[in-house]
Structure formats: C-alpha cells, structure tokens
C-alpha cells in the first residue's frame, strides 16, 4: 500500500501542490488537510508547505501556530510521526516550538530566490536517512526570513545531538553556522528553508530534492 502523506493547507500556503506532486512522484499518496482539521490519524507523514500562512502577519508562522491543525501536528509529532516543514512550514514549526530556534530576516534584507548547494550534515533525521553525510545537493531557496538563529545553549544542544541536518555550502542569508535545516532531538520533526519539492526533476534544474523527499516518504512510522 502506498504511503499516505498529509499536506497541510493554511490560508496563504502556496507550495502545497508542488509538495503533493513531489511525494506522489515517489509513489506516495498526498492528501490536503485544511488548517482547521483536528486529526491527522491514518497519515504516514505530514508536510507543512511553503507560502505565507495567514499572510505572514506579525511574524512568519506566528498566527499559523494557533491554527487548530497545529495541535494535531504536535500530537502526531509526539507519537513519533514524521513531520516536515518546508520554508514557511519551517517557520511555523519553530514558532510552534516543535523545532528549536527561530528564522530571522535575511542578512541584507534581501528576498532570495536562487539555487543553493546544501551539504548533508546528519542522516539521523526523517529527511536525510537515505542520503549520506557529505552529499552535496542543489536545492533552490525562496525566502525573505530564512536566517536561522538560536541562543548559545540551543546551538550547543543542536551540535551535541546531531540535530543540524543540512548546511549551505555558501551562506546566502546570514544563517547561524550556515544552517539550512534542523531536526528535533528524535529526528522525526525536520524543517528546512530550501525547497526540495522544487528539485524533483533534472528538466527543472535539479533532482537532488528526491533523496530528501524519498527519505521522508519512507521514514519509519510509529504512529
């Protein structure tokens, strides 16, 4: 049976179709979940896609974290279910406290839309289990608030627990320690600013996102 991936739609999400198409190209089934949903049972994984949830008012992710679905996402994550936040979805997960740290405005206040080269730092996450440490992946970014930041204690914890999942080879946005993606301590919740769902086909520039979404689609489920 194919894996069922829930793709959460907030008012203002705009990468949900790319995410759904990405996982379906890997043989999974994608189903959209409206942000007012209160249950995620039956899913093998949940994606919070990119976009501008609730208009990004106040701060990106600040209002989305109070959407009813976020309690279900937290429960799903607590039980070990794989959760992936891409771009705005990453911002939502940090605001919700499901991932450590925060995303700040880019250094230089520049909106960035360009390919980046990422290096796989840890394979102990739902997003990177099928990759190898040191793999370089070309994946585009498309954001204004993507500079990862955290306090020193959190940073030490990230290093000690191998929670830094991906780094930029060339830092585009001022992220602390070139961080592009982080996981929670258990590795089942992962967030990244780059868009793997837009790097699924060589025809469109890169297919390096496939190993990431494939890892996620096949991540072990304990829910």
């Amino acid at each position: 049976m194919s894996r069922r991936i829930g793709v959460v739609m907030f008012p203002g999400s705009n990468c949900e179709y790319d995410a759904a198409q990405g996982v379906e190209s890997l043989g999974a089934t994608a189903e959209f979940v409206w942000h007012s949903a209160t249950s995620l049972s039956g899913f093998d994984g949940v994606i919070l896609p990119g976009g501008f949830a609730h208009g990004d008012y106040l701060r990106p992710g600040a209002l989305a974290r109070f959407s009813p679905v976020m309690e279900a996402v937290a429960a799903f994550a607590r039980e070990g279910g794989p959760v992936l936040g891409i771009c705005n979805g990453f911002q939502v997960l940090t605001e919700a406290g499901l991932l450590p740290g925060a995303l700040q405005k880019n250094r230089g206040l520049t909106f960035l839309c360009q390919p980046t080269t990422l290096v796989v730092v840890s394979t102990k996450s739902a997003l990177t289990s099928e990759a190898k440490v040191g793999d370089e992946l070309v994946v585009p970014i498309n954001h204004f608030s993507g500079a990862y930041t955290c306090d020193d204690d959190t940073y030490k914890q990230l290093l000690d627990n191998d929670q830094i999942v991906l780094r930029y080879v060339v830092n585009p946005n001022g992220s602390r320690d070139d961080i592009a993606g982080v996981a929670n301590e258990q590795g089942n919740v992962v967030g990244l600013m780059p868009h793997p769902e837009r790097a699924m086909s060589r025809l469109l520039g890169s297919e390096d996102g496939r190993v990431l979404l494939s890892s996620f689609v096949h991540a072990n489920v304990t829910v």
Binding site: Q104, K105, N106, R107, G108, L109, A147, T149, G174
Partner: peptide, 9 residues
C-alpha cells in the same frame, strides 16, 4: 545580541 538587519540597514 540578536542581529538586527533592519536596524543595521
């Protein structure tokens, strides 16, 4: 201690 790109600009 948190960088402020807006203030810096």
């Amino acid at each position: 201690g948190i960088a402020d790109p807006e203030g810096a600009t």
